[in-house]
Design a protein around this nucleic acid. Structure first.
Length: 592
RNA sequence: GCUGGCAUAGCUCAACUGGUAGAGCGGCUGAUUUGUAAUCAGCAGGUUACGGGUUCGAGUCCCCUUGCCAGCUCCA
């Protein structure tokens, strides 16, 4: 799957790139002292970073857009010019573009030939390409979108510039289309749906990033846990349970304190000891492994736990359920021999695929995160890394799922495979992470006895196919748009009597299905029948049962699915067996 | 954490350039007893996020705090 592959030779690339220059020109008209940062084309348009004495506000957009159109209509020609590094620096210094001067130094160090593009009064250090003339840009194909801060060269150490985002497409129609799609996608945002469905609540009194799970959200958590427990049981996992706080020393052993301390809550002091809230479950599982002598005959050992962890995320990174400070992971650690590790890794990959098929997720891809030379972020062991990376890549090839490799994003103890999904607004999220870890076993002195009695170090796989409850539930809410399949729905069946006379019959059915462990309710309100139908639909309940005189006399129900006008009247016992089977099979009624 | 924006009833939103806070939905009460997307009526809900300032007067202007949103950085 080609991702974010912006093709510099394409029409739209030149269009967006040129619009970035036009924007910069317009900004310089109203802010002559603005210093320019970067201004590239991006997925849905372009942006340009500015260092401004007074910040722009959204109120400036209409004026800027007007100026941009005027520039476009004036028919400026884009001219390319090759300029030596020294000459380029001089010219940029003359126009007091200090960021660009810095950029010239970086580029010159790499020995690149430098080019600039000039259109009208504006010129910019830039490698192009651009349209030939601004007249090629349809005046109504773009719109300034949002303002944001962005660090110069993307580093927190640098000054923050102001970034202006613009949308741009080849035609007005495509622009409108995108804006409409985005508006619709926003309707599926889990935070938006949450105001209607009440899955969770984050209260200021409790703390930011600390969600409280309401009954509806807890149903989804519980059902996911049931699923995981069943499949992990079948996969040969054993369940374990571990505490939320732990003595400091365990995290020195694991290496979390040097490498991960920024993401941990500060410790609490008790009886002269420091205790930390756990940011990960692995050290505890390693201790369980270590508590009993292990033989090669025992391996692989697979410990699974839905473990709750606490991570100190920076406040600005928190977002609904997608980024929180208290999270419960679908965690497990697999301890195995070098001979077993590839097979185990492949089984983990296959488990992912099974889950994703169950949820009907097609739009996902894998990202392989590898270490880089910067050893401050990674456990430094030159022998172990290439070995681990090669092993992972072999396994990935074997399951035949395409992946993209990224340097420098590994976990500090090993290469990482992330399953990336894209949420409804197109933002990429990591749904789950898996790691091959050739480091921890050594640090924890984990061993197993080999066939001839000598000690060996096991290999460890960290895996969390369902990620965390928080992120996965958020993702599922958006994926299903709040209309869950029967097995996940907070209310699975609602019975609507056409008149109060049939309420007793409705309750009789409710009692029976309740004993079958279905989440079921009767709409006893004083609303009109039409209103009850409407309420059932807006509540996105997957199954509505309508009962009246006809149904009662035949011991039947009229069954209607969410989002469908179709309905069928069936014997109650038939409904009962069909809905129970659907629930048991975790089938999605959209596919039935 | 950083940059910018936002904050009015449970939800969605009103209140012209400062002149004593309103509606719909939802909730409650009563009437209505309904066969596929809103039955009718009445009632109750707000120290306009918190604290301070300017003013005869602040939801509206200014400052602070908190929270939320977008993006950056970071990440499951």
């Amino acid at each position: 799957m080609a991702r974010h592959a912006l093709d510099p030779t394409s029409e739209i690339y030149r269009l967006r790139h040129s619009l970035a220059h036009v924007l910069a020109q317009a900004v310089l008209e109203i802010r002559p002292n603005a210093k320019l940062g970067f201004g590239p084309p991006i997925e849905h348009g372009f942006y340009y970073d500015f260092d401004l004495e007074a910040p722009l506000t959204p109120e400036d957009f209409p004026d800027l857009e007007k100026r941009m159109r005027r520039i476009i209509n004036s028919g400026q020609t884009f001219e390319r010019e090759e300029v030596g590094a020294e000459e380029m620096s001089t010219r940029l210094e003359e126009s007091r573009q200090s960021y660009k001067v810095e950029q010239v130094q970086d580029l010159a160090a790499q020995g690149e030939a430098l080019t600039l593009y000039r259109n009208g009064p504006f010129w910019d250090l830039c490698e192009g390409p651009h349209v030939l003339n601004t007249k090629e840009i349809p005046g109504n194909c773009f719109a300034l979108d949002t303002l944001a801060g962005a660090y110069w060269k993307g580093s927190e150490q640098n000054t923050m510039l102001q970034r202006v985002y613009g949308l741009a497409f080849e035609s007005k129609l495509e622009l409108r289309d995108f804006q409409e799609k985005r508006r619709l996608a926003l309707e599926r945002d889990h935070r938006k749906l949450n105001t209607q469905q009440h899955y969770f609540v984050i209260e200021e009194e409790v703390g930011k990033g600390l969600p409280l799970w309401m009954p509806n959200g807890t149903v989804i958590r519980d059902e996911l846990e049931k699923l995981a427990k069943e499949w992990e049981f079948l996969g040969g996992y054993q369940r374990v349970a571990t505490p939320h706080i732990t003595k400091e020393n365990l995290y020195h052993t694991s290496g979390h304190l040097p490498y991960y301390a920024d993401s941990m809550f500060p410790p609490m002091e008790v009886d002269g000891e420091k205790l930390y809230l756990k940011p990960m479950n692995c050290p505890h599982h390693h201790m369980i492994y270590k508590a009993v002598p292990r033989s090669y005959r025992d391996l692989p050992v697979r410990f699974a736990e839905y473990g709750t962890c606490y991570r100190y995320e920076q406040s600005g990174e928190l977002a609904g359920l997608l980024r929180v400070r208290a999270l419960t992971m679908n965690d497990a650690h697999i301890y195995c021999t070098p001979e077993q590790v590839k097979e185990e890794f492949i089984r983990v990959m296959r488990l992912h695929i099974d889950y994703y098929n169950l949820f009907g997720l097609q739009n996902f891809w894998m990202r392989l995160s590898l270490a880089e030379e910067d050893t401050t972020k990674f456990v430094d062991d030159p022998e172990v890394w290439p070995q681990a990376e090669a092993l992972v890549m072999e396994a990935m090839d074997e399951v035949e799922i395409p992946y993209e490799a990224v340097r420098g994003e590994a976990a500090f103890y090993g290469p990482k495979i992330d399953f990336q999904v894209s949420n409804v607004v197109g933002r990429e999220e990591t749904a789950s992470t898996n790691q091959l870890d050739l480091v921890m076993a050594g640090r924890f002195e984990l061993t197993y006895k080999g066939a001839v009695g000598q000690d060996h170090t096991p290999m460890i796989i960290h895996r969390a196919p369902l990620g965390t409850h928080e992120r996965f539930c958020a993702f599922l809410i958006e994926h299903y748009g709040g209309a869950f399949p029967t097995w996940l729905a907070p209310v699975q069946v609602r019975i609507i009597p056409v008149a109060p006379t049939f309420s007793e019959y409705a309750h009789q059915l409710r009692g029976e299905l309740h004993r079958d462990f279905l989440r079921i309710e009767v709409d006893d309100s004083h609303d009109s029948f039409g209103k009850k139908i409407r309420n059932g639909a807006t509540a996105k309940i997957p199954n509505l049962l309508i009962v009246g005189g006809e149904e009662q006399s035949n011991q039947a129900v009229t069954w209607q699915r969410y989002g469908s006008k179709a309905r069928e009247t069936v014997a109650f016992t038939e409904f009962q067996s069909r809905i129970l089977e659907e629930n048991r099979n975790r089938a999605d009624w959209r596919n039935v």
